[in-house]
């Protein structure tokens, strides 16, 4: 089962705007890519064409791991607006 299959089991109500934004100028100088390795939903990736970091906010489990793992402070992270985001039915 892929991580995408797992996330497909979850209930999401996605907002239009992302609740996660990255500071590309910081990401540009980052070698470690802490976000890629730590995100339990595997939402971070490096765009091969543009060389920019990208994050797929729509599958976010709202744990905040990236916010804490990125010690360079590139991740600006807020909770999704009220009523949006993941809706745990078991938790």
């Amino acid at each position: 089962m892929t991580i995408e299959d797992k996330l497909a089991q979850d209930a999401f109500k996605n907002d239009e705007a992302s609740h996660i934004t990255l500071d590309q100028s910081t990401c540009k100088d980052c070698r470690e890519r802490f976000c890629i390795y730590s995100c339990p939903a595997h939402l971070y990736s490096l765009n091969e064409e543009t060389g920019q970091m990208q994050v797929e906010f729509a599958g976010c489990l709202e744990c905040g791991t990236c916010l804490i793992a990125c010690i360079y402070g590139s991740v600006a992270w807020n909770y999704p607006r009220g009523g949006f985001g993941v809706h745990y039915r078991y938790g």
Binding site: Q9, P40, L61, T65, I68, Y90, G91
Partner: peptide, 9 residues
């Protein structure tokens, strides 16, 4: 069968 995948700090 998987019914939910979750994460929390």
């Amino acid at each position: 069968s998987l019914s939910e995948y979750s994460a929390h700090m």
